[in-house]
Amino acid sequence: MTESAAPKRRLHMSPFKAPVMPSPCPQRFAVGDRGTHGVYGLGRVIAVEGSIAALGRSGSTRTRVLGPYAKTTKL
């Protein structure tokens, strides 16, 4: 048998998890960037720890958000 070039369709009732596709380009933050987080809201990056985490401030709250920043959007 030959393999088809088209990807296989998944059934919505399948008990198997869909393969996780990596995001095409991970977000990178720099000090001073503004962003919004799903839980913490609007804020500004005050420190970056390599590609591992970013420290942010939203209002009077400081938070440490770990990468890959799934709930964070850069503004």
Score class of each variant (00 low, 15 high):
1 M>D: 12
2 T>F: 07
3 E>P: 04
3 E>G: 15
4 S>M: 07
4 S>L: 03
5 A>T: 07
5 A>E: 05
5 A>G: 12
7 P>A: 08
7 P>H: 11
7 P>F: 11
7 P>T: 07
7 P>E: 12
8 K>W: 09
8 K>T: 15
8 K>C: 14
9 R>V: 05
9 R>W: 03
10 R>A: 06
13 M>L: 14
13 M>S: 15
14 S>K: 08
14 S>Y: 09
14 S>I: 11
14 S>Q: 10
15 P>D: 08
15 P>F: 01
15 P>I: 00
18 A>G: 05
18 A>K: 02
19 P>W: 06
19 P>H: 03
22 P>V: 03
22 P>M: 01
23 S>D: 07
23 S>T: 11
25 C>V: 12
25 C>E: 06
27 Q>V: 14
27 Q>N: 12
29 F>G: 00
29 F>Y: 05
30 A>E: 04
30 A>P: 04
31 V>T: 02
31 V>Y: 06
31 V>R: 03
32 G>F: 08
32 G>H: 11
35 G>Y: 05
35 G>H: 04
35 G>C: 15
36 T>W: 08
36 T>L: 01
37 H>R: 09
37 H>V: 12
39 V>T: 12
39 V>Q: 09
39 V>P: 08
40 Y>A: 01
40 Y>T: 01
41 G>F: 09
41 G>L: 07
41 G>S: 04
42 L>S: 10
42 L>F: 09
43 G>K: 05
43 G>H: 05
43 G>C: 13
44 R>S: 02
45 V>F: 03
45 V>A: 01
46 I>K: 08
46 I>W: 03
47 A>R: 10
48 V>E: 08
49 E>I: 00
50 G>F: 09
50 G>T: 02
51 S>N: 10
51 S>E: 03
51 S>D: 10
52 I>M: 10
53 A>M: 08
53 A>L: 08
54 A>F: 01
56 G>D: 01
56 G>N: 07
57 R>F: 06
57 R>K: 13
57 R>P: 10
60 S>N: 04
62 R>H: 11
62 R>T: 09
64 R>K: 15
64 R>L: 14
65 V>Y: 00
66 L>I: 12
67 G>Y: 04
67 G>W: 03
67 G>C: 10
68 P>D: 08
69 Y>F: 06
69 Y>H: 09
69 Y>M: 13
69 Y>R: 04
70 A>V: 00
70 A>E: 13
71 K>D: 12
71 K>A: 07
73 T>V: 14
73 T>E: 13
74 K>L: 14
75 L>E: 03
